[in-house]
Amino acid sequence: KLPPGWEKRMFRSNGTVYYFNHITNASQFERPSG
C-alpha cells in the first residue's frame, strides 16, 4: 500500500508507470516508501 496521497499512474504515450501525490502535487518514478 502506498503512503497517504500517493497513487500509481501511467503515461498513455509510452506506458511508463509513475507515482503522483495529489496532496503535494509531487510526482516520481520511484515507488514512495512509507
Score class of each variant (00 low, 15 high):
K1I: 12
K1H: 12
K1N: 14
L2I: 05
L2Q: 01
L2R: 04
L2N: 01
P3S: 02
P3L: 04
P3I: 00
P3R: 01
P3D: 03
P4S: 08
P4M: 08
P4E: 09
G5Y: 05
G5P: 07
G5K: 00
G5R: 01
G5W: 05
W6H: 03
W6D: 01
W6I: 00
E7D: 04
E7N: 03
E7L: 07
K8S: 06
K8H: 05
R9M: 10
R9H: 10
M10Q: 11
F11Y: 13
F11I: 15
R12P: 14
R12E: 15
S13W: 08
S13G: 11
N14Q: 08
N14F: 01
N14K: 08
G15P: 00
G15D: 07
G15F: 11
G15Q: 07
G15I: 02
T16Q: 14
T16N: 09
T16H: 12
T16F: 07
V17S: 09
V17E: 13
V17F: 13
V17T: 08
V17N: 08
Y18E: 07
Y18D: 10
Y18Q: 05
Y19G: 00
Y19N: 00
Y19S: 00
Y19D: 04
F20H: 11
F20N: 00
N21I: 09
H22Y: 15
H22N: 13
I23S: 05
I23P: 02
T24I: 03
T24K: 02
N25T: 05
N25K: 13
N25W: 04
N25R: 11
A26M: 14
S27G: 06
Q28H: 04
Q28N: 03
F29P: 06
F29W: 10
F29S: 08
F29L: 12
E30Q: 07
E30V: 06
E30S: 01
E30A: 03
R31H: 10
R31K: 10
R31S: 04
R31Q: 07
R31N: 10
P32K: 01
P32S: 02
S33W: 11
S33Q: 11
S33R: 09
S33N: 11
G34E: 13
G34R: 10
G34H: 11
G34D: 13
G34P: 12
G34Y: 14
